[in-house]
Computed example of a mutant assay.
Amino acid sequence: MRRLVLAFLILIVGSPLPAQTVSKRVGLVTISVDEGLAFPGGLFVVRLQSRRGIGRVVASFDGLRCPFFNTRHGQRALVPIRPTLAGGTATLGIELEARRGRQRIPVRATIAPREYPPRSVTLPDGKLALLMRPGAVRQSRQLLLTLRLESTEQEWRGPFKAPVDADPVYGYGAPTHYAGAANVEMATDSLFGEYHRGMDYLVPPGTVVQAPAAGRVVLAAPQILTGNTLVLDHGQGVLSVFFHLSRIDVKEGEWVESRSPIGLSGDSGIAAAPHLHWAVYVHGVAVDPRVMESLAD
């Protein structure tokens, strides 16, 4: 029953909002902001059309600068919204190079409110010791740098798919307390406080993990805290990361197609129990992976 209740809460929290688009036209440039995934932990999907050539375009928001990339449907920027932000009106700055020089166009959009239920985790004594291992935090900082990669090509097509055939039991965004430990989430990420940065699937050890979308392997190595860790670069600032694997079946630099087997689930690192942790980072910020399951390319 407890799992059913948790899954129901995750379903509510992860549902996309009714689609709504805010548009603004300045001269020959039209900017559209899709608010359908705009909630704490979600995304602004910003598109730009221009009847004249323009240079580099960047969307700035909440201290982040997110470049526009070419897609099959024109130029687009994915702007992550941190889960710690409150709902309400927000202003994005669209910075572009035009004939008259550099311009900054403000666009107001709405972040829908969203709350995430808290959770408490108890780590076994043997796992707690990993937090004190020399180099653990430094290694995690290096992982975060990897999760900030911004390759220019979009490698995925269509919505992402869950990496295992199971419903997540613990969802994204939950304020997390670790009994007998402090700052575990920040030790593995270092930014934005103690909240759960991905989805946890309580699957048996050895469950086959599949790529949620096409991409290139940019990290496949054991880590002190996150265990056997795999990072896929899907392009344009979007990356998937998988923690606590028992085995990694791909190598760094290897290209994988959507639904390709990439490893086996396990309980390596500071996992409290055997499970798969899947997180999605957009421009270095962990977002709810379900936004990529809802995002049309």
Rank of each mutant, 00 (worst) to 15 (best):
H73W: 15
L144G: 05
P222S: 09
R247S: 15
G53V: 03
A272S: 14
R216Y: 00
Y170D: 11
V241P: 00
A211I: 02
K161R: 13
V285E: 06
A179G: 10
A7E: 13
A221N: 08
L28D: 14
R56S: 13
G42M: 01
P117E: 10
Q223K: 09
R157G: 03
H177L: 12
I81L: 09
I94C: 08
E254K: 13
E153T: 08
A214N: 04
L276W: 02
V282W: 04
H234M: 00
F68C: 01
G206V: 08
I94T: 10
S190M: 06
R104C: 07
R102N: 12
F192G: 11
V46A: 10
D189H: 14
P134N: 08
S260P: 00
H244Q: 07
R216D: 00
A179F: 10
K251A: 12
L48E: 15
I248H: 06
V46K: 09
I248S: 02
S15L: 13
E97V: 12
V45K: 09
T30L: 07
Q75T: 13
R108A: 14
L232V: 00
G42L: 01
Y172G: 00
G235V: 00
V238K: 04
V209S: 06
L276Y: 04
I248K: 06
T226N: 08
T226E: 01
L239P: 02
P117G: 14
G215I: 01
L295Q: 07
V29G: 01
R114K: 06
D233G: 00
V29W: 00
V79E: 02
P83A: 12
I10T: 09
L131W: 03
R65H: 15
M292S: 03
G235L: 02
G36R: 03
H196W: 08
G14Q: 13
I262A: 04
R51W: 04
I54M: 12
